[in-house]
Computed example of a mutant assay.
Amino acid sequence: MLDLDDVKSGKQRDLSIEEVAAWPADFAHLMAHPETKEPFNHGTLVVWRKIDRLRFGGHYGTGLKERMQDLTKFIARAYRRFIDKGLYIELDDREITLHDPLFLLSNPRVVKKFGEDLRAKIVDEGHFTVDGHSVNWRVSLLPEEVRRKRGEGGRAGKGREDFEDLYIPDNVGRISMLRNDREIYYDVVPRLLPNGVDKVDRFIGIEISFPAELDEYFQVRNVKRGAEPVSKLREELKKALKKPVDEARKEVRRYWGEVEQKEALATGDAHMGAHEAVDNFDRTAPKGQAGFDGTDQATVDETLQQLFQDLGLDPGKEDDKAKAEWIRESFDSRALTVVDAA
Rank of each mutant, 00 (worst) to 15 (best):
R77N: 11
N41W: 03
Y88M: 12
T62Q: 13
E95Q: 14
A32Q: 06
A32D: 00
P34C: 08
G63F: 08
R67G: 12
R80N: 07
T44H: 15
Y88N: 13
R67W: 13
H59F: 09
T44R: 15
L105A: 02
L98Y: 01
S16H: 06
I96W: 11
E38V: 05
Q69E: 10
L71V: 08
L87N: 14
N107A: 04
P101Q: 01
L64I: 13
A76Y: 07
K85W: 02
I83A: 05
L87I: 14
I17D: 09
N41C: 08
D100Q: 01
W48L: 15
M68T: 09
V46Y: 13
A78Q: 12
T72P: 09
G61P: 11
L87Q: 11
D117R: 07
K112G: 04
S106K: 09
P101E: 00
E18T: 11
P24R: 00
G58Y: 05
M68P: 08
G43Y: 09
P101W: 01
I96V: 12
E18S: 07
G57I: 10
D26K: 15
H42G: 11
F27S: 12
T62Y: 08
L15H: 06
T97E: 00
D93R: 08
I89T: 09
V110G: 00
W23C: 01
K112Q: 06
E95G: 12
L91S: 04
I51S: 05
P108F: 01
D52W: 10
A21C: 14
P34N: 06
V47L: 08
E95H: 13
T72N: 15
K73G: 10
L64C: 13
D84K: 10
N41A: 11
E90P: 11
E95M: 14
T72M: 12
L54V: 14
K50T: 05
L98W: 02
F114A: 03
F56Y: 09
D100H: 01
K50C: 04
K65H: 10
K73R: 15
V47E: 11
L104A: 04
E90D: 14
A28W: 09
I51T: 06
T72S: 15
T36P: 02
P34A: 05
W23E: 00
A76D: 05
K113A: 00
G86M: 03
L45G: 04
W48D: 09
E35R: 04
L30V: 13
M31L: 06
Q69A: 07
D117G: 07
R55D: 10
D14Q: 12
L87S: 14
G43E: 05
V46F: 14
R67E: 12
P39D: 02
K112L: 02
